[in-house]
């Protein structure tokens, strides 16, 4: 298994350890805001275990992905919502 994985977060490349979740990678990139709530509030991860849906992101073009439950893959395109 590769030691590190390269992916893109909002168009910026980032390298993380293999096995890192997308949520952790986004926080690691210095971005605590994952999405805007329905009334426009800034939101980031809460439960970290796939329950609360606060860490939803667009991953490889698929909207509303729970980033805490998805492991970073090479070349992944991640966009905050």
């Amino acid at each position: 298994m590769a030691e590190s994985v390269d992916l893109w977060i909002n168009g910026t490349p980032i390298r993380v350890c293999a096995g890192t979740s997308v949520a952790a990678a986004v926080l690691l990139s210095g971005e605590p805001v994952f999405r805007r709530s329905v009334s426009g509030e800034k939101r980031g991860p809460l439960c970290g275990m796939g329950i609360c849906f606060e860490c939803r992101l667009n991953i490889d073009g698929v909207e509303h992905c729970r980033s805490c439950q998805i492991v970073c893959r090479e070349g992944m395109q991640v966009r905050t919502e």
């Binding site: 096995g19 952790a24 926080l27 690691l28 805001v33 800034k42 991860p45 809460l46 439960c47 805490c68």
Partner: peptide, 26 residues
């Protein structure tokens, strides 16, 4: 979780939630 003013601010997380994120590479 229980709600209190500001609990939706980014970087307010569950105890297990933050721990899970650290285990996932944060």
């Amino acid at each position: 979780f229980l709600p209190f003013p500001g609990w939706t601010t980014p970087n307010v997380m569950g105890i297990g939630g933050l721990q899970a994120l650290v285990k996932s590479g944060l």
